[in-house]
């Protein structure tokens, strides 16, 4: 499956990556060749094969419903770019 610039732009937008025009065309090139390599998969007959999402056939272990975490806000917010009154700040979101 060939890749078009609009698809790269769409992926960049979904992934929230600012991409310049120059970068976009270089990504179209790189990504196109990666997908070309990936396209070899299409030649394998996978009829009746179930997808393997996880390498071991294990099941989820459940956690007891207990409060085990305490407040560490101060520690967690030390690496935060912008906080005020314990809140993380982002540019005003209009709903």
């Amino acid at each position: 499956m060939a890749l078009e610039q609009t698809q790269v732009r769409r992926a960049a937008h979904l992934a929230r990556l600012d991409v310049s025009d120059d970068q976009a065309s270089s990504f179209v090139d790189d990504l196109g060749r990666i997908l070309e390599m990936v396209d070899q998969l299409q030649s394998v007959d996978t009829h009746d094969v179930a997808p393997l999402m996880h390498p071991l056939d294990a099941t989820q272990r459940l956690r007891a419903d207990e409060v085990t975490e305490e407040d560490q806000r101060e520690r967690f917010q030390r690496s935060a770019p912008a906080v005020e009154d314990g809140l993380y700040l982002v540019p005003r979101v209009v709903e």
Binding site: V8, A12, A15, L17, L31, V38, V44, T46, A50, P51
Partner: peptide, 26 residues
């Protein structure tokens, strides 16, 4: 990130992601 975003997106998910996971089983 771009490759992953693209292959998971609508219209490509089955052809790429599900297909790859099937081959992973093989």
């Amino acid at each position: 990130i771009l490759i992953g975003t693209h292959t998971l997106s609508e219209g490509f998910f089955d052809a790429y992601y599900i297909k790859a996971q099937k081959i992973r089983r093989l």
